[in-house]
Computed example of a mutant assay.
Amino acid sequence: MPVHPLPIRVFHWLNAFAMTCMATSGWAIYNASPLFGFTFPAWATLGGWLGGAVAWHFAAMWLLAGNGLFYLAYGLASGHFRRRFLPLSPSGIMTDLLAALKFRLPHEAGTYNAVQRLLYILVLLLGVLAVASGLAIWKPVQLWWLSAAFGDFATARYVHFLAMAGIVGFVAVHLILVVLVPRSLLPMLTGRHSSSHEVSS
């Protein structure tokens, strides 16, 4: 069995493209009406102007949502979620977290430790929260009940921004780990490791 089956690799790279478009176009939309006392530099944004950023954001949103639904269906039907994300317990998380802080966390190719399982579950939940809050912002009148679930339109904007910030933070850590352990990139390209075990921090 490959470390990462072909469907998982396809979902991963489509998601990477869609998330990059969503984040950078979202930053351009944010700059038009900032929530906090800062804006994003123009070179880090996508769309060129507000209308272009909105068009990119919605186009990427459909790709991300469709890809997410197929990933969810595959993960449940194939047992991928059960194999990769479970079991998960507070004691297991603390044990692996302490081992990681001491740079003594063993890693078996294709197997997630408890900290990784927790982070992947959290980022999936953040994805759901980002989609829900995004829909509440997009259609606040038609989906008034969804906007009301977040309190109001303004609160939904804050929730959407913070959910996306959490996802971007996860991606940033993910990329840093890839740079530190470049061998981890190979399985997501070919599906297989050059060796069956490796040790990383």
Rank of each mutant, 00 (worst) to 15 (best):
L125R: 10
L129S: 09
G127Y: 05
L146W: 07
S33F: 06
L46N: 06
A23W: 08
K139W: 08
S195R: 14
P7E: 13
V179P: 00
V141E: 12
V179T: 04
A18L: 08
G151C: 12
L64F: 15
A60E: 10
D96E: 01
G166D: 11
H160A: 08
L185K: 11
E108L: 12
L162D: 03
S200D: 01
D152M: 00
W56N: 02
R82M: 06
A55F: 10
F58G: 01
R82G: 02
F81M: 05
G75N: 11
W43V: 11
R9V: 05
A53W: 03
A55T: 14
A23M: 08
G151L: 13
F70E: 02
L101M: 13
W49C: 07
L118F: 14
A172C: 12
V199A: 13
F11P: 10
L76M: 10
A60Q: 09
R117P: 02
L119V: 10
H107R: 14
W27K: 03
R83S: 12
G66H: 03
K139N: 03
T155F: 07
A172W: 12
H107T: 06
F161C: 10
G191C: 12
F36I: 07
S201H: 14
S78W: 11
F38N: 04
G37W: 08
V178W: 08
Y74A: 02
D152A: 05
F70D: 00
L143H: 09
A148E: 13
L180T: 08
V178C: 11
L180Y: 12
A65E: 07
A148D: 13
A55K: 05
L129E: 11
L186C: 00
R9W: 02
H197V: 10
W27R: 02
A18S: 14
V179R: 07
H4P: 04
M61D: 04
W145Q: 14
A53R: 04
L6N: 01
S133C: 06
F150S: 08
A32R: 05
L101F: 04
V54F: 11
P7Y: 07
A165Y: 04
L88H: 08
Q116H: 09
W43A: 14
E108Q: 15
A23D: 01
P41A: 12
L86E: 00
S184K: 02
G26H: 05
V159M: 04
P140W: 03
G75P: 01
G127T: 10
G37D: 09
L180M: 10
W49M: 01
L118G: 14
K102S: 13
G48R: 11
V181W: 00
W27N: 02
L129W: 08
L162T: 01
A73K: 04
A44I: 09
H12W: 09
L185W: 05
A55W: 01
V159W: 07
W145A: 15
L146E: 08
V179Y: 12
F40H: 03
A18C: 06
L97I: 07
A163V: 07
H160M: 12
R157N: 00
G166K: 09
A154L: 10
W62N: 05
P182Q: 13
A99R: 14
F170T: 04
G68F: 13
I8D: 02
I167E: 01
A53M: 00
V141Y: 13
L129T: 15
T190V: 14
